[in-house]
Write a protein that binds this DNA or RNA. Structure first.
Lengths: 224, 224
DNA sequence: GCGGGTCTGCACACGATCTTCACAACTTGT
DNA sequence: ACAAGTTGTGAAGATCGTGTGCAGACCCGC
């Protein structure tokens, strides 16, 4: 998830819609506003928001239907706005895929806080299985590695070696340790083998990534 | 959704956890048990349950946080276990994605009944749902698969293999895992069998769909 | 039993990867 | 600055993993 986060606000009350939009813009989001159900769904498809703030009461068809349709095409977190104490709407809303809700009246501060929480939740889900060190990104699930957005193709040994180092940033590891961990260990293996793999990693990811500690071994430096 | 339904039980009280697990196993479910929040989240990611039974009070971080994190990555029905009359927990629980709740103490019969209801509700929802990854479309109800609108005829094994991969987009899966999950596992099965099915999938759906990770296994890439 | 479709195992060829080696370049301590 | 030890480099052979085509086994409906 790179760049500015986009938020779609679907709310028929112009005053509320503008307040919400203004606050979210002040928080650094790119904001689009729709004032009825059908245009909300249309905006969701074209604007591709990272989050939707959705009023339950809407002209056209209501927020629940909007929620259903938005969720049907792709998974987007939805923050629902409900009238006070309207439990039925609330429950149905949660059932059709809303992730959180606010009852009117609400403060803009509270709204902003919830939006941040929701987006953090989502981005955590995405980044939970990856190692991120400066501009170096290692996706553990897909075993993909990129630096400054440029993907590098690593062989199995290179990848294992990198992950082992990346899990212990800046810590110096002896050749023997690296040999045993990354490459499978077998009798009479020359520790010079590690050099070859380090060399390959430097060639593919940049020479500054792995620091040589003379007489000891190697360490991965967090790049900036 | 093929084969046995999987249920994850997250509950720190060993006695309750074992009772629940035993009852659910007797009901024909495959059951995994976690005793704290972090391992619950980890299990949810690897065990990929069809339903989670979740205690609100947990060591590590609490059930609500577990619920949030589980829901953040994929949509799984959650049955929440709460102390009697704890309304706050209940409401927040529903807000973060729980689908039903039981207050302690509860009978195993009641638990089993609720689990069945939840799964029936979900399977109905699932049956109308489809897996959409870029231009790849998998209709789970009719077991139909198409790419860029062109339908492909897959054999049962190929279909199961594809769905298993598609449920974990870009995550690398070992041959052994694929063999066990998609094809039934049996002694002396050669993991090379997987190659044959992957080859068939590539022929029918395009070579770029499934990525080979040398020395590890295969991963499905979201096509663009 | 027969035919078609499907699953599985095998062998070969090819490509990718690992490891080693020799030599150059470098670092360190004296 | 020198020598000794350490690391970088490039290439080459050995090894391993994967793609492919094919054939037998298996299953199921007729």
């Amino acid at each position: 998830m790179t760049g500015q986060r986009r938020v779609l606000v679907v709310e028929d009350d112009i005053t509320i819609a503008e307040s919400v939009a203004a606050r979210l813009r002040a928080e650094g989001f790119e904001v689009a506003v729709a004032h009825d159900g059908p245009s909300g769904v249309a905006f969701a498809a074209s604007f591709l928001p990272d989050l939707v703030v959705l009023d339950v009461m809407l002209p056209g068809f209501d927020g629940l239907e909007v929620c259903r349709r938005i969720q049907a095409s792709r998974s987007v977190p939805v923050l629902m706005l409900t009238a006070r104490g309207d439990e039925t709407d609330l429950l149905v809303g949660l059932a059709v895929g809303a992730d959180d809700y606010l009852t009117k009246p609400f403060s803009m501060r509270e709204l902003a806080a919830r939006v941040h929480v929701l987006l953090r939740r989502v981005s955590r889900a995405v980044s939970s299985r990856s190692l991120e060190l400066g501009d170096l990104l290692i996706d553990l699930a897909s075993r993909r590695v990129s630096r400054s957005g440029v993907e590098a193709h690593l062989t199995p040994t290179e990848y294992d070696l990198l992950v082992f180092l990346a899990e212990r940033p800046s810590a110096v590891q002896a050749r023997e340790r690296l040999l045993a961990e990354a490459c499978g260990w077998h009798e009479g293996a020359s520790s010079r083998t590690v050099d070859s793999h380090v060399k390959a990693l430097r060639r593919k990811l940049g020479a500054d990534l792995i620091r040589t500690v003379h007489g000891v071994g190697y360490a991965l430096e967090v790049p900036r």
